[in-house]
Simulated assay, not measured.
Amino acid sequence: MTRPLRYSQPRRNGVVGHNAALQQADVIRSKGLLVTSPAFTWTDLASVLSLDDLVIAGDSLLRRQDAPQRGGCFPMPDPLCQLSEVREMVARRTGIRGRSAAVAALDLLRAGVDSAPESRLRLLIHHAGLPGPEINQWITGSDGRAISCPDLQYRRLRIALEYEGEHHLLDPAQWHRDIERDERLRQLGWVVLRFTKQHLRPENRAGTAEKVRFALSARGWQPGWPA
Score class of each variant (00 low, 15 high):
Thr2Gln: 09
Thr2Ser: 12
Pro4Tyr: 09
Arg6Val: 11
Tyr7Cys: 12
Gln9Phe: 05
Pro10Ile: 07
Arg11Asp: 08
His18Glu: 14
His18Ile: 08
Asn19Ala: 10
Ala21Ile: 04
Gln24Glu: 15
Ser30Thr: 14
Gly32His: 07
Leu33Trp: 13
Leu34Ile: 03
Leu34Asn: 13
Val35Leu: 14
Pro38Thr: 00
Pro38Phe: 00
Pro38Ala: 03
Ala39Glu: 14
Trp42His: 03
Asp44Arg: 13
Asp44Asn: 14
Ser50Tyr: 09
Val55Asn: 00
Ile56Lys: 01
Gly58Leu: 00
Leu62Trp: 04
Arg64Cys: 13
Gln65Asp: 12
Gln65Arg: 15
Asp66Met: 09
Pro68Gly: 03
Pro68Lys: 05
Gln69Thr: 13
Gln69His: 11
Gln69Gly: 12
Gly71Gln: 10
Gly72Arg: 13
Asp78Thr: 14
Leu80Gln: 06
Gln82Trp: 06
Glu85Val: 06
Glu88Phe: 04
Glu88Ile: 05
Ala91Gln: 15
Thr94Cys: 07
Ile96Asn: 01
Arg99Ser: 05
Arg99Gly: 05
Arg99Leu: 08
Ala101Gly: 07
Val103Trp: 06
Ala104Met: 07
Leu109Ala: 03
Ala111Phe: 00
Gly112Met: 04
Val113Pro: 02
Asp114Tyr: 01
Ser115Val: 02
Ser115Cys: 04
Ala116Val: 10
Pro117Phe: 07
Glu118Tyr: 01
Arg120Gln: 13
Arg120Ile: 04
Leu121Ala: 02
Ile125Asp: 00
His126Gln: 10
Gly129Asp: 08
Gly129Val: 09
Pro131Cys: 10
Pro131Asp: 10
Pro133Glu: 04
Glu134Pro: 01
Ile135Leu: 10
Ile135Ala: 05
Asn136Cys: 09
Gln137Glu: 09
Gln137Ile: 04
Gln137Thr: 06
Trp138Glu: 12
Gly141Trp: 09
Gly144Ala: 04
Arg145Gly: 08
Arg145Trp: 09
Arg145Asn: 11
Ile147His: 01
Pro150Ala: 03
Asp151Ser: 10
Asp151Arg: 07
Gln153Ser: 15
Tyr154Ser: 04
Arg156Leu: 13
Glu162Cys: 02
Tyr163Val: 07
Glu164Ser: 09
Glu164His: 14
Gly165Tyr: 05
Pro172Met: 06
Trp175Phe: 15
His176Asp: 13
Arg177Gln: 14
Asp178Cys: 05
Leu185Cys: 05
Arg186Val: 03
Arg186Asp: 03
Gly189Lys: 02
Val191Glu: 12
Val191Phe: 08
Val191His: 11
Val192Gln: 02
Phe195Asp: 01
Phe195Met: 06
Thr196Phe: 04
Gln198Arg: 14
His199Ile: 09
Leu200Gln: 12
Leu200His: 12
Arg201Val: 10
Arg205Asp: 04
Arg205Tyr: 05
Gly207Val: 02
Glu210Thr: 11
Glu210Asn: 14
Val212Pro: 00
Val212Glu: 00
Ala215His: 05
Ala215Ile: 06
Leu216Ala: 06
Arg219Leu: 10
Trp221Asp: 10
Gln222Met: 11
Pro226Ile: 11
